[in-house]
Design a protein around this nucleic acid. Structure first.
Lengths: 312, 312
DNA sequence: TTGAAAGCGTTACCAG
DNA sequence: CTGGTAACGCTTTCAA
């Protein structure tokens, strides 16, 4: 593996000079520059980012923490994050947690040891210690699409889940439904909890309260993936959606619009959120501080055909 | 950020000693060990993996190159890769390419500069220079689920696409179909090409040749995501699957089994493939060489309800 | 059993 | 404009 020194030797100059032409920050004589550039090409030299990081005390990498990439919404978010990061010259270290606290601990330790410059988190176990631990180590973190935390140092690209759930309940209520249930992830994710709260408040506002999944004529899922699973389960059980029971999701993953699915859901723009999260994170890195910024986006209800009039 | 030296000062020993207790490779007196461990805890010290990497000349990270994480199969593969890597103490750097040659170049450069110890590739543009370029730089690479390359240094966790396509065609032929079409990705991916070849051979064996999408009564998609899109398009156009046209996919993503979809497809075990790819890659890293190993898995046809008797 | 020192590949500060 | 030198934080001989 060729190093700077070898290039220098090859060009008959000092390593400082080679470094200078690479950085392009210092003026170097046209002729020497040419010699050096030639040497670089001839040796096929590629800078060692690790050495550079050590010296510069910045890894030019960010961590992406995601409960489960198999969830298309998380995948879309990750795609956006990686793209944006790459655009800024940052690499993306990805890590799953399954929303399991012990994996979260392990993962945030690993990312910290690798000195990621920032991390964006797509989902958290409820009561997770991860953000604080990262923050305390001086790493800016931004939460994309998440639940109820309140550390002032955090960055948020947040969703107005309460408003969304209100809109969903209103839609269903207008369709005549009076028996509602909410279903969330098998693992405990913060955003799931917050949506559930929004759901319950919307119900309370109408003097209703949640019933069991079996009794409900309308079931709201924490996300689209769950909603898809629900439809599958319901229809395998012999009932049909939306005639016997209405189902809604959350996220508007691409498949939700499929003609065989047509899921009523709340749209979130993963593309935008991921990009925005990186923007906030890198801005904080540059400023040498934390993000300390919250923005809340309110997402539209997308009405399709998984919801219909309440059966009577 | 606390460093080794600070821990050493804190404990009143030399940094070598601290390093020794951390590595645990050298015997160190019980009492000093205790002092050091205390100091580590008190200072909240976390080793700097970057410094460690520079010294050890190994980054303990692998690169995962993926055309598009929005494809559930790629996502599943990535999940498996990340999990396996994590288990071995390796971090995963993820990078998308969209199968665009210029992005591939950029991405492999970035991974090389970051000195990833190995890379696993989920998909490649046809005629991609990426594998060779990586290989030439001494980085072991393994291709998971891919097309027709033949560098002896490569590792392959490969699929028998020809056999798979033969099985699909046989199934459809038995159902009475005589007009077949194949559809692949908008971008040029190697594995797509190979499946198309398998498809055409299977046709030739029956003295048939491919027809246009519009004329076909059976359409084979390069992967499930495409097949889903196809079903959507066909049914929005007023025809129905499988009554007017049969559709098959490839991969068996979780949604393929959904009661609303029931896609006939070829199953690949992303979980297994990802894990195996990492295994091969890390084994090569340890041995200090290339993978130079090819294994071919033959995948079963899963018959569901997107295929039916040919219309007459 | 412990510590001093060299060095991994860079960058940055200063002299020359 | 160029080059020597000292870090960056760690591991690893090698002596003591």
């Amino acid at each position: 593996m060729t190093t700077l020194v070898e290039v220098a030797r090859h060009a008959g100059v000092s390593k400082s000079t080679v470094s200078n032409v690479i950085q392009g920050r210092v003026t170097v004589a046209e002729t020497t520059r040419r010699k050096v550039e030639l040497a670089i090409r001839e040796t096929g030299y590629r800078p060692n980012a690790i050495a550079r990081s050590l010296r510069a005390r910045t890894s030019h990498s960010i961590g992406m923490i995601v409960p489960d990439l198999n969830n298309p919404f998380h995948a879309a978010l990750s795609v956006a994050v990686e793209r944006a990061a790459k655009q800024h010259g940052y690499a993306t270290l990805i890590a799953h947690t399954d929303c399991a606290p012990d994996i979260e601990t392990e993962v945030s330790r690993a990312l910290f040891e690798r000195r990621v410059d920032a991390v964006v988190i797509a989902g958290l176990s409820t009561g997770s210690a991860m953000p604080t631990s990262l923050l305390d180590n001086g790493i800016p973190v931004v939460l994309a699409s998440f639940g109820g935390l309140s550390d002032g140092r955090l960055g948020f690209v947040d969703l107005d889940d309460a408003a969304a759930m209100e809109a969903v309940v209103e839609h269903l209520f207008g369709l005549g439904h009076r028996s509602f249930a909410f279903v969330s992830q098998s693992y405990a994710e913060q955003s799931g909890e917050r949506r559930r709260q929004g759901f319950e408040q919307a119900l309370a506002r109408r003097a209703l309260s949640a019933v069991s999944r079996e009794e409900a004529t309308a079931i709201m899922a924490h996300n689209d993936l769950l909603a898809l699973g629900l439809i599958d389960e319901i229809e395998r059980g012999g009932r049909t959606v939306p005639f016997d029971v209405s189902v809604t999701g959350h996220d508007d993953i691409p498949l939700a619009a499929h003609s065989r699915i047509r899921l009523t859901t709340v749209r979130s723009d993963a593309q935008f959120m991921g990009q925005r999260a990186v923007e906030l994170a890198l801005r904080a890195v540059q400023a040498g501080g934390h993000v300390a910024h919250r923005e809340i986006h309110t997402n539209p209800l997308v009405i399709r055909h998984s919801t219909g009039a309440a059966p009577r």
